[in-house]
C-alpha cells in the first residue's frame, strides 16, 4: 500500500469531522418540540392543526397572490366550510395575537427567517 500513513491520517481526520455533530452534542439536552402558545379566543384554525403545521407557508403564499394579484379575498375552509378573509394580519394574527409566542417559537427553533415581518406589522406584544 502506498502512502499508508497519509491515507490513515486522512481517514482519521475525515471520521472525526464526519461524526462532529454526534460527539459535539452528546450530553446536551435532547431536542424538544417547540410549544407555540395557542390562542385563547378560538378553538379552530382555518384548517386542521396538522395541515396548518405542514402547509401554512404555501397557504400564505397562495393567499398573497390571490389578494394582491387576483383581488380574491375570501377563503373557504376545507375543514368546516367557514369563510375567512385572506389576510395574515387581519385574520391569522387576530387569534395568534403574539408573534413572539407563536410564530417565533418554531421559526427560531428551526432557524428559518421568513421575511413576512419585514413589511407586515406584527401586533403589539403585550408585555
Amino acid at each position: 500500500m502506498y502512502d499508508k500513513g497519509a491515507v490513515i491520517a486522512g481517514l482519521a481526520v475525515f471520521v472525526v469531522f464526519f461524526s462532529f455533530p454526534f460527539w459535539y452534542n452528546t450530553g446536551s439536552a435532547a431536542y424538544k418540540q417547540p410549544q407555540p402558545e395557542l390562542p385563547k379566543n378560538s378553538k379552530q384554525c382555518v384548517e386542521s392543526k396538522e395541515w396548518m403545521r405542514a402547509e401554512h407557508m404555501q397557504l400564505l403564499n397562495t393567499w398573497r397572490d390571490d389578494v394582491v394579484r387576483e383581488g380574491m379575498h375570501e377563503y373557504t375552509s376545507t375543514a368546516n366550510g367557514q369563510v375567512f378573509n385572506k389576510s395574515l394580519v387581519k385574520t391569522c394574527m387576530k387569534c395568534h395575537d403574539s408573534k413572539e409566542k407563536f410564530c417565533d417559537k418554531c421559526h427560531t427553533t428551526m432557524d428559518v427567517n421568513p421575511y413576512c415581518w419585514d413589511c407586515h406589522v406584527a401586533p403589539k406584544e403585550a408585555k
Partner: peptide, 10 residues
C-alpha cells in the same frame, strides 16, 4: 406609528 392593517415597505 405603523398601523398593522397595512404593510410597510422595505
Amino acid at each position: 406609528d405603523a398601523i398593522p392593517e397595512f404593510p410597510t415597505r422595505t
